[in-house]
């Protein structure tokens, strides 16, 4: 090869290499849009009551169980328990979100779609969150959206206890500050956010996010026979919305349990 053409070849090669390398490469990761769904347990039958036995020995038949989910998030970090942590948002990076809420029929195993698609990066998620509120300001004590609406019967020791209950998370759930010097120690958002839900997830293109809510987790510790009787004829027991009795507090705890009630998964 003549010297001049060799120089030209090398020069062209360097320039071509530069131009190719300049236009290739990545900053890492990806942002994907996904469909999101929520559903009751897989062993439920659509349109049919859902029957189960709680760890307290109650045979519960749910005829109505509706949950309002305000938002769902996945986070990259696995938070440590910090008593003074008052931030509504987890530290670390949020990697997935569904920001428009919906009401979920917990008696149906069918996937019920969220009204808007969600957004996710391809980062690995270690923590899930379910936000139980009506939308808007997560700390607004005036948001009295019914979060959980349940009805059914519970049987134990040959006795039947028809029950119903509605749970809101508003003024009724505010926890007083521990002292005057820490007025913001108990923000209301901490009552509305179910977190940390342990997950081990990484999204792939085309995946859909599925939130499953298991009603068994809601009633796991509820001693339904200790509920106040709301009426005699017909007999009806009602969960209180102010946590005024142990079974009501147990139902509320089950609603906010990060283990046992909620599960998140990417499904193809």
């Amino acid at each position: 090869m003549k010297k001049r053409s060799r120089i030209a070849t090398v020069t062209f090669g360097v320039l071509a290499g530069l131009s190719l390398s300049a236009c290739t490469g990545t900053t890492g990761g990806e942002i994907v849009v996904f469909d999101a769904f929520a559903a009751g347990p897989e062993d439920a039958v659509a349109g049919q009551p859902y029957t189960f036995t709680t760890s307290r020995g109650y045979d519960v038949t749910l005829t109505r169980a509706e949950l309002h989910v305000g938002a769902v998030y996945l986070n990259r970090s696995r938070p440590s328990s910090v008593a003074s942590d008052t931030s509504c948002q987890l530290p670390g990076i949020y990697v997935a979100e569904v920001t428009e809420g919906m009401d979920v029929d917990l008696l149906s195993p069918d996937l019920q779609p969220f009204p808007e698609q969600g957004t996710s990066t391809t980062d690995h998620a270690s923590t899930g969150e379910v936000w139980l509120f009506g939308g808007g300001d997560i700390n607004d004590p005036g948001d009295a959206t019914v979060i959980l609406d349940v009805a059914g019967t519970a049987e134990k020791g040959g006795q039947t206890y028809p029950f119903e209950g509605e749970i809101t998370i508003a003024h009724n759930r505010e926890i007083p500050a521990p002292s005057d010097s820490l007025p913001g120690a108990n923000p209301l958002c901490k009552q509305r956010i179910v977190s940390p839900i342990p997950v081990d997830l990484a999204v792939a293109e085309g995946d859909r996010l599925v939130l499953r809510v298991d009603p068994r987790g809601l009633f796991a510790s509820a001693q339904i026979d200790l509920l106040e009787k709301a009426s005699e004829d017909p007999p009806l027991y009602r969960f209180r919305d102010d946590g005024g009795d142990a079974p009501s507090r147990a139902l509320y705890s089950g609603l906010r349990a990060s283990i046992g009630t909620y599960s998140l998964a990417w499904e193809p």
């Binding site: 942002i31 305000g70 998030y73 990076i93 949020y94 979100e97 809420g101 936000w131 808007g136």
Partner: peptide, 19 residues
């Protein structure tokens, strides 16, 4: 840019990086 912002345009805060 791709980063996180929330302008209260949706029901819940947007916490994931967006364009």
């Amino acid at each position: 840019y791709n980063f996180v912002s929330d302008w209260h345009e949706t029901g819940a805060p947007t916490l994931v990086p967006a364009r």
